[in-house]
Computed example of a mutant assay.
Amino acid sequence: MPQPAWGEALPALWRFALVMACWAVIAASLASLVRNRTAAVLVLVLWPLIIERAIGLLLSRLLSADALPGLLPFAAARAAMSGTSDPGEGTDAALTQTLLGSGLGPWTGLAVHVVFTFAIGAAGAWHYCRRDAP
Protein backbone atom coordinates (compact mmCIF):
# COMPACT_ATOMS: atom_id res chain seq x y z
CA MET A 1 0.00 0.00 0.00
CA PRO A 2 1.52 3.35 -0.98
CA GLN A 3 2.16 5.98 1.67
CA PRO A 4 -0.22 8.97 1.63
CA ALA A 5 1.09 12.38 0.68
CA TRP A 6 1.45 14.98 3.43
CA GLY A 7 -1.54 16.83 2.10
CA GLU A 8 -3.69 13.76 2.68
CA ALA A 9 -2.26 12.93 6.11
CA LEU A 10 -2.26 16.43 7.60
CA PRO A 11 -6.03 16.67 8.36
CA ALA A 12 -5.91 13.35 10.21
CA LEU A 13 -2.88 14.50 12.21
CA TRP A 14 -4.65 17.75 13.16
CA ARG A 15 -7.76 15.85 14.28
CA PHE A 16 -5.63 13.48 16.34
CA ALA A 17 -3.73 16.37 17.95
CA LEU A 18 -6.97 18.18 18.81
CA VAL A 19 -8.54 15.07 20.34
CA MET A 20 -5.44 14.48 22.46
CA ALA A 21 -5.44 18.13 23.60
CA CYS A 22 -9.07 17.68 24.58
CA TRP A 23 -8.09 14.67 26.71
CA ALA A 24 -5.74 16.87 28.73
CA VAL A 25 -8.44 19.47 29.32
CA ILE A 26 -10.98 16.80 30.28
CA ALA A 27 -8.53 15.17 32.70
CA ALA A 28 -7.65 18.44 34.45
CA SER A 29 -11.27 19.54 34.61
CA LEU A 30 -12.47 16.20 35.94
CA ALA A 31 -9.74 16.18 38.59
CA SER A 32 -10.90 19.65 39.62
CA LEU A 33 -14.52 18.51 39.82
CA VAL A 34 -13.99 15.34 41.86
CA ARG A 35 -10.94 16.51 43.89
CA ASN A 36 -9.48 13.02 43.71
CA ARG A 37 -6.92 12.15 41.06
CA THR A 38 -7.46 8.39 41.42
CA ALA A 39 -11.20 8.73 40.86
CA ALA A 40 -10.57 11.02 37.88
CA VAL A 41 -8.20 8.49 36.30
CA LEU A 42 -10.66 5.64 36.89
CA VAL A 43 -13.48 7.62 35.30
CA LEU A 44 -11.32 8.53 32.31
CA VAL A 45 -10.33 4.90 31.78
CA LEU A 46 -13.73 3.32 32.35
CA TRP A 47 -15.90 5.96 30.71
CA PRO A 48 -14.84 5.43 27.06
CA LEU A 49 -14.46 1.68 27.45
CA ILE A 50 -17.51 0.61 29.43
CA ILE A 51 -19.72 3.38 30.79
CA GLU A 52 -20.31 5.27 27.55
CA ARG A 53 -21.11 2.14 25.57
CA ALA A 54 -23.55 0.96 28.26
CA ILE A 55 -25.24 4.38 28.35
CA GLY A 56 -25.42 4.42 24.56
CA LEU A 57 -26.99 0.97 24.50
CA LEU A 58 -29.54 1.98 27.13
CA LEU A 59 -30.39 5.22 25.34
CA SER A 60 -30.83 3.49 22.01
CA ARG A 61 -33.06 0.81 23.54
CA LEU A 62 -35.14 3.14 25.71
CA LEU A 63 -35.55 6.00 23.25
CA SER A 64 -35.41 3.93 20.05
CA ALA A 65 -32.84 6.36 18.66
CA ASP A 66 -30.01 4.46 17.00
CA ALA A 67 -28.05 7.63 16.15
CA LEU A 68 -28.00 8.93 19.74
CA PRO A 69 -25.08 6.77 21.00
CA GLY A 70 -22.94 8.17 18.19
CA LEU A 71 -23.27 11.64 19.69
CA LEU A 72 -21.68 10.64 22.98
CA PRO A 73 -18.30 12.34 23.43
CA PHE A 74 -15.79 9.51 23.20
CA ALA A 75 -17.66 7.75 20.39
CA ALA A 76 -17.42 11.06 18.55
CA ALA A 77 -13.68 11.18 19.32
CA ARG A 78 -13.23 7.68 17.89
CA ALA A 79 -15.08 8.80 14.76
CA ALA A 80 -12.86 11.90 14.52
CA MET A 81 -9.69 9.82 14.68
CA SER A 82 -10.92 7.12 12.30
CA GLY A 83 -10.96 9.36 9.27
CA THR A 84 -13.70 7.37 7.57
CA SER A 85 -16.69 9.54 6.76
CA ASP A 86 -18.53 6.67 5.06
CA PRO A 87 -17.54 3.12 5.99
CA GLY A 88 -19.32 1.77 2.91
CA GLU A 89 -21.56 -1.28 2.85
CA GLY A 90 -21.22 -4.91 3.84
CA THR A 91 -19.70 -6.68 6.78
CA ASP A 92 -16.68 -4.37 7.00
CA ALA A 93 -19.00 -1.38 7.37
CA ALA A 94 -20.92 -3.09 10.18
CA LEU A 95 -17.68 -3.95 11.97
CA THR A 96 -16.37 -0.41 11.58
CA GLN A 97 -19.66 1.00 12.89
CA THR A 98 -19.55 -1.36 15.89
CA LEU A 99 -15.93 -0.59 16.76
CA LEU A 100 -16.34 3.17 16.44
CA GLY A 101 -19.73 3.32 18.09
CA SER A 102 -20.58 6.30 15.92
CA GLY A 103 -21.72 6.99 12.40
CA LEU A 104 -20.43 10.57 12.47
CA GLY A 105 -17.93 11.89 9.98
CA PRO A 106 -14.45 12.82 11.22
CA TRP A 107 -15.01 16.59 11.39
CA THR A 108 -18.46 16.28 12.94
CA GLY A 109 -17.10 13.87 15.53
CA LEU A 110 -14.32 16.32 16.33
CA ALA A 111 -16.84 19.15 16.74
CA VAL A 112 -18.98 17.06 19.13
CA HIS A 113 -15.91 16.11 21.19
CA VAL A 114 -14.67 19.72 21.34
CA VAL A 115 -18.09 20.96 22.51
CA PHE A 116 -18.12 18.30 25.23
CA THR A 117 -14.57 19.26 26.23
CA PHE A 118 -15.57 22.91 26.42
CA ALA A 119 -18.53 22.06 28.67
CA ILE A 120 -16.45 19.90 31.04
CA GLY A 121 -13.64 22.49 30.99
CA ALA A 122 -16.02 25.33 31.84
CA ALA A 123 -17.54 23.31 34.69
CA GLY A 124 -14.09 22.43 36.06
CA ALA A 125 -12.87 26.03 35.83
CA TRP A 126 -15.99 27.36 37.49
CA HIS A 127 -15.75 24.77 40.27
CA TYR A 128 -12.05 25.49 40.81
CA CYS A 129 -12.56 29.27 40.93
CA ARG A 130 -15.50 28.93 43.30
CA ARG A 131 -13.83 26.49 45.69
CA ASP A 132 -10.03 26.77 45.51
CA ALA A 133 -9.09 30.14 44.03
CA PRO A 134 -8.57 32.95 46.58
Rank of each mutant, 00 (worst) to 15 (best):
L72C: 12
M20F: 14
L33W: 03
G90L: 09
L44R: 02
W126N: 07
T108E: 08
L57I: 14
M81G: 09
A65Y: 09
Q97V: 06
C129V: 13
A111Y: 04
P2S: 10
H127N: 02
L99G: 06
A75K: 12
D132Q: 04
A111P: 00
A93D: 08
T98F: 09
P134F: 02
L18R: 03
P134T: 03
A31Q: 11
G88W: 11
A31H: 04
P48G: 15
R15S: 05
D86V: 07
Q97F: 07
A133M: 12
A75W: 11
L10D: 13
C129K: 11
W23A: 13
L18A: 09
L57K: 15
L58W: 13
S29F: 02
S60P: 08
P87D: 00
A31F: 04
A111I: 01
F74T: 13
W6K: 10
S82N: 01
L63K: 10
S60M: 11
R53Q: 07
P11D: 05
A40I: 02
G105V: 02
P73K: 15
L18P: 08
A17N: 10
S64T: 14
L100G: 11
I26N: 06
S29T: 03
P73W: 12
A133R: 09
A5S: 12
M1V: 01
F116N: 04
D86C: 07
L46P: 03
G83H: 00
G56S: 15
D86A: 06
V34A: 13
L95C: 15
H113E: 15
C129Q: 12
R15D: 02
